[in-house]
Write a protein that binds this DNA or RNA. Structure first.
Lengths: 196, 196
DNA sequence: AAAAAATTTTAATCTAGATTAAAATAATTC
DNA sequence: GAATTATTTTAATCTAGATTAAAATTTTTT
C-alpha cells in the first residue's frame, strides 16, 4: 500500500496529517502555513520543500483522504457478505482511519476552491466513492438486508454524517474511540425502539 | 419574529444569504467580498455599509443560522407529541429553512476562526442547540418512541448529517426538495428492512 | 572525515484581497 | 423641489500571509 517509506515521504505524510488537523479545525483560510509548520516544529518556508504551494497542500490532503476512503471501501467489500454488513464494515473501517493513527483525515469541504484540474480530479474520486457506497446500499436492498430506500439521498445523508465526525471528535473530550462501535449502529439502525 | 423590516435590514438579510451561499460553496477564505457583492449587484466596498468587516459577516451568518435552527426546534417542540415526532418535525422544519426561501443557511464550519467573543457566543448557541436536540432524544427514549441509545453520539451523528446538506443540495441538480420528506425518515428510520 | 546531497532557516519580496476616506448618486423628508 | 439623509462607488492604502532565493545546517555517502 505505502510506497517504500523514505525520510521524505514520511515527513510529507506527517505534514499532510498536520495540515488536515489545521484545516479541519480552522478551515483552509483560517490556517496559515505557519500554523501547520508549528505543529511539525518547522518554519513555514520549510514546507515548500515538500509541496509547491498551499493549494497543492490541500489538494494532497484531499487525495490522501480519498485514498483512505477507498481503502476502507475495498476492505469492506472484501470482508462483508450482505450489503448491510458491507455498509457497517465500511463505516467502521473509515472511522477507524479517522480517529486512529492515520488520522486526522481532511474534510473535503473546499473542493470548489481548488484549481480546475485538481478540482476535477478530486471531484471524480469523490463521486466514485459515493457511487460505490450507493452500490453497496443497492446490494443490500437486493439481498434483503437493507429496506427499500432512495440510495442517492440515503448515501448523501450517511456520508454527511461521516464527513462531519472530525468536527466534533477530539480524542481528548469525553467522546473517545467508542465512536467506532456506536456510529455504524446509529446510522444503520436508526432510532426505532425494540431492535437493538 | 422579524423586527420591523426596514430597507436596511432587508438588504442586510439578502447580504447574509448571499454570503452563506458563497461560504458554503467555497469556504470562508475562498470567498472574497467581491464574490458576495457580485451576487447582490454591488461593489465590495458597499458591504461595509452593512457590516464592520468580513469577520463580522461570518459571525452574523452564524447567528442567523443559530436563530433559524432554534426556531425550527421551538416549532417542533410545540407541534410534536412524542420525542420521535418532535425529532422528525425538527428535522423537517430545519431542512425546510435550508432549502426554501430563507436559505441558504451558513454551515458553521469555521467557528474556531472567529474572534474570541464572537466565538464564545456562537459556540454557546451551538451547544445549546445540541443540548436541546439531545433532550428531545431522551424524551423519546422515556416515552418509548425512540430506542435506547447514546444521545450524545446519536445527536452528533444526526446533526452532522443535517449540517452537511448544503454541501450536496442544490435546487438545480436532480435532488430537489424531496429532501424535506425523505431526510427525516432516513435518519430516524435507519436501514432496516420491513419497517417502512 | 571530506564531499555530496538533503533539509531547514533567514531574510526579503510580492500579492490578493480587505479596508478606508472622500466623492457621487439615490431616496426621503419637509 | 430644496435640503437632508441614506446608499453606493471610485480610487487609494494597508496588511497578513504566501512565496522565493540564497545561505546555513544537517544527514548520508564514500
Amino acid at each position: 500500500m505505502a510506497q517504500t517509506a523514505t525520510r521524505f515521504s514520511l515527513q510529507r505524510d506527517r505534514m499532510l496529517r498536520a495540515a488536515a488537523h489545521c484545516f479541519n479545525e480552522k478551515g483552509y483560510s483560517g490556517s496559515s502555513l505557519k500554523d501547520v509548520a508549528d505543529i511539525l516544529g518547522l518554519t513555514d518556508a520549510a514546507l515548500y520543500y515538500y509541496v509547491k504551494n498551499k493549494q497543492e497542500l490541500v489538494y494532497l490532503c484531499y487525495i490522501r483522504a480519498a485514498e483512505l476512503g477507498r481503502d476502507a471501501m475495498d476492505r469492506a467489500e472484501a470482508d462483508g457478505n450482505t450489503g448491510l454488513e458491507q455498509v457497517n464494515l465500511y463505516l467502521r473501517y473509515h472511522i477507524e482511519y479517522m480517529v486512529g493513527e492515520e488520522g486526522p483525515i481532511a474534510i473535503m469541504s473546499e473542493i470548489p476552491s481548488l484549481k480546475p484540474e485538481h478540482r476535477e480530479e478530486v471531484l471524480a474520486l469523490s463521486r466514485a466513492h459515493s457511487s460505490r457506497f450507493e452500490a453497496m446500499l443497492e446490494r443490500g436492498i437486493a439481498d434483503g438486508s437493507i429496506g427499500a430506500c432512495d440510495v442517492r439521498m440515503t448515501g448523501n445523508s450517511i456520508m454527511g454524517s461521516v464527513n462531519w465526525i472530525p468536527k466534533w471528535y477530539h480524542s481528548d473530550t469525553g467522546v473517545g474511540p467508542r465512536v467506532i462501535e456506536e456510529f455504524p449502529r446509529i446510522l444503520s439502525g436508526g432510532l426505532q425502539p425494540g431492535l437493538s
